[in-house]
Design a protein around this nucleic acid. Sequence first.
DNA 1: GCCAACGTTGGC
DNA 2: GCCAACGTTGGC
Length: 156
Amino acid sequence: MTYWLFKTEPAECGIDDLLNAPASICWSGIRNYQARNFLRDQVAIGDQVLIYHSQCKAVGIAGIAEITRAAYADPHQFVVGDRYFDSKATITTPRWFNVDVCFKRKFQQIISLAELKQIPALHNMMLLKQGRLSVQPVSTQEWLTIMDVAGGLDDQ
DNA sequence: GCCAACGTTGGC
DNA sequence: GCCAACGTTGGC
């Protein structure tokens, strides 16, 4: 089991969309090779995911999701005219992948980016070193540190 | 909206 | 394979 951090714009799909979804939702639209490689090669069923809200008023970690389906070809890459169409992708050699996630937990308060930056145990977190990666691994120590900050109670 | 940092494309 | 130009991400 591995820990991850996924970035998302809450205006598109935030922690509340996960919370309100009746079942798993498809995590799609990843179009960065480094993120793709993590998704395709390493993300597995049961992995735990920090949901990070970006490009919004309150940036930070909003809650937790769980992987319910490992990587499968993103159908959008095959649809001519689709925003995510990719002419170099084929059915037999897809280029982009999705996973499915389900809601696990919404933190009572977002753990803000500013707060994360101030925690010494997180200084090496990918999030803080390489700002742009939308799927990234989180170490066990980092995960435990964040769980500590989030508090132990489930709280929706 | 600005701008820095980073990723991708394409000519050579 | 290099590198300039361009595009995108993402915090502020």
